[in-house]
Write a protein that binds this DNA or RNA. Structure first.
Length: 583
RNA sequence: CGGGGAGUAGCGCAGUCUGGUAGCGCAUCGGUUUUGGGAACCGAGGGCCGCAGGUUCGAAUCCUGUCUCCCCGACCA
């Protein structure tokens, strides 16, 4: 293709509202154009990249028996009521909704478990039709609380969503593993350094789930990694070994109650009682678990030097969402100002749970629901009833990992894929059954598998860019090689450039001929910003000694080659790069 | 939704405090000269100063309301 015929629009300034690299570069290079918050035009050049990513996804999923379908984006409320997810998505307000002329309410697909389960239920009646893996590459909608970072978090995005249906758990395990391996290959072929981590299943639900992360400083997720132990987990899910407190198992001392005027936080308490370390304190975190039709206040007892993990807590409560209590609610429910809640004399309105870190503590310091007072040398079981215990702590970098005890390190990551073992969550709820070998109805055993296609493109930019601009992997670059003639008025050089371009195209390369009448510097800057993996430069040298330059955008290397060797060399390079990305 | 910031030409910004004919750089269009690292000169076009109301002889500027966008938190591919 000739660059002069393409809609290429680049800018010299970053857009003022861009924060992260991929947003800045994609906007400057004209790949995206914002229409409103979280809504972007994908320009023609980006469309080529998205098409290539989609094609890699198709090849790999077809390779494990996936079949492509298209599912409706408009999904009626009644269908979501049957799975029980409508109130969940209403509570988190994740789903955009709309009404038709009959005032029937529809959700705009954030994901499609209900629709695909309905479809498979209606069309799949026998175990002989299983296993079945269906996927689509389609627009998804999420009413994000805060869209940001360019294509990273948007209201409308392209997702590949796949769903597997098996007769039993063993089948699901096999399917899940096949998808996991396909995902590894997909991200590798897209030129991304991605790795799998243990993850929370969130609103999708199910028994097991793994996220695929691209390491990048701009990533919104924190991942804890136990080196040498094959353990990596999203901080939402990560565990660590607890470092014991000095007070664990101490011989109980008599209870004391001290006046602590206006001393509310662990920090303030440490200043007030310098002899009591934070890990001898128990804080009482008050949260409201929210359902569609009710709310239940929860009190969480947590060792003073630890933090509550809200995802773990939400899962423990079974609520659809969590929120902080208002100051007014705290006073009404505990009888004390905020900052003085504690397990002693706590209202029975609260459901109470303690983190495992509290289990062995004795002689601890905590609140007793009286303003401006705290209790010391408190002993669980003696001074307040033993609560149930659960693992609710947020694991932190530096703590010993759960496998070998090697210290956890933290990395930032962008979530590009997520796979889930759903089991029978949806099929059982929606009555989606097949007939098994014994002639009995059984719910499908399901898995679901997502890849953020547009996010993959942004991640590639995020992970591989340099100060000059984007560096696309060969496999997903809009064009693999650009031929740039720096003397756009020299007929001889024009002919040379066109000849090279045609030969490269005839060799099956995805080549671009940059025939735009730009000054040499401007043209080179532009091609570097746009991120084509290889650039062939024709100019003065071509005229004087019959050489051309071959530039490798990834390495920054420039080679000078005789004109006669150029086509063969570039073709070999591109083909090698394509192969290098194959597993 | 809570807290902080911003809306002036396609993009990046100044002007607002202290009211008085709307500016700069880049981009765009025409012309001449250029052509290996974001060229030079000459000329041109482009604005409801986010929107609505108010104060004033006069509002980008002051006041009120409202919408939008960005940043920090909860959500997720």
């Amino acid at each position: 293709m000739r660059a002069s015929q393409l809609h290429i629009v680049t800018y010299r300034n970053d857009p003022a509202d861009a924060e992260v690299t991929s947003h800045k570069l994609m906007a400057r290079a004209g790949y995206i154009h914002k229409i409103s918050a979280g809504l972007y035009v994908y320009a023609p050049m980006l469309q080529r990249t998205l098409r290539k990513i989609s094609e890699i996804v198709r090849q790999e999923l077809d390779g494990i028996g996936g079949q492509e379908v298209t599912l409706p984006i408009l999904q009626e409320q009644a269908l979501w009521e049957r799975s029980g997810r409508w109130p969940v998505y209403m509570a988190s307000r994740t789903m955009l909704t709309t009404k038709d002329r009959k005032e029937a309410t529809y959700g705009l697909a954030p994901t499609a478990e209900e629709v695909v389960t309905e479809y498979v239920s209606a069309t799949t009646k026998s175990y002989k039709q299983l296993p079945l893996s269906l996927y689509q590459i389609n627009t998804k909608f999420r009413d994000e609380l805060r869209p940001r970072f360019g294509l990273m978090r948007v209201k409308e995005f392209i997702m590949k969503d796949a769903y597997s249906f098996d007769a039993d758990e063993a089948g699901l395990d096999a399917r899940y593993e096949a998808f996991r391996q396909a995902y590894v290959r997909i991200f590798q072929r897209c030129g991304l350094e991605a790795f799998g981590v243990d993850a929370d299943a969130g609103d999708i639900g199910g028994s097991g789930s793994m996220e695929f992360m691209v390491a990048a400083d701009a990533g919104e997720d924190a991942i804890l990694i136990e080196e040498g132990a094959d353990y990596a987990a999203n901080v939402e899910k990560a565990q660590s070994r607890l470092v014991p407190s000095a007070c664990d198992g101490e011989a109980p001392r008599p209870l004391r109650i001290e006046a602590t005027p206006a001393v509310k936080t662990v920090e303030q308490l440490q200043a007030f009682f310098p002899e009591v370390a934070a890990d001898r304190m128990v804080k009482t975190v008050l949260m409201m678990a929210v359902w569609a039709d009710r709310e239940v206040p929860w009190a969480v007892l947590m060792r003073g030097d630890q933090e509550v993990n809200e995802v773990k807590l939400k899962n423990h409560t079974g609520g659809l969402a969590l929120r902080m209590l208002t100051d007014h609610e705290i006073v009404a429910l505990t009888g004390a100002e905020p900052g003085f809640a504690g397990p002693i004399g706590l209202s029975s309105a609260f459901s109470i749970v303690a983190d495992e870190s509290v289990r062995a503590m004795n002689n601890l310091l905590c609140g007793l629901n009286q303003t401006d007072k705290h209790a010391l040398d408190v002993n669980p079981g003696r001074d307040f009833p033993l609560p149930t215990f659960a693992e609710l702590r947020t694991a932190r970098a530096g703590e010993p990992g759960p496998r070998t005890g090697a210290p956890l390190i933290v990395k930032r990551g962008i979530e590009v894929g997520h796979i889930f073992k759903l089991g029978t969550k949806y099929s059982a709820a929606m009555g989606a059954v097949f007939t098994d070998e014994g002639g009995r109805p059984k719910p499908f055993v399901m898995g679901c598998y997502g890849i953020g296609v547009s996010r993959v493109a942004a991640s590639a930019v995020e992970q591989r860019s340099d100060s000059l601009g984007i560096r696309w992997p060969v496999s997903i670059a809009p064009y693999e090689v650009a031929v740039a003639n720096l003397s756009p008025k020299d007929d001889e050089l024009i002919a040379t450039a066109e000849g090279l371009y045609t030969s490269l195209k005839n060799n099956g390369l995805d080549a671009l001929y940059d025939d735009r009448a730009l000054a040499a510097g401007a043209k080179m800057k532009d091609l570097e910003l746009l991120g084509f993996p290889f650039v062939v430069v024709i100019g003065r040298g071509t005229k004087t000694d019959g050489t051309v330059e071959l530039r490798d955008r990834a390495s920054g290397a420039t080679e000078t080659l005789p004109l006669s060797a150029l086509v063969e060399t570039v073709t070999a390079r591109v083909l090698a790069a394509r192969r290098g990305l194959l597993p």
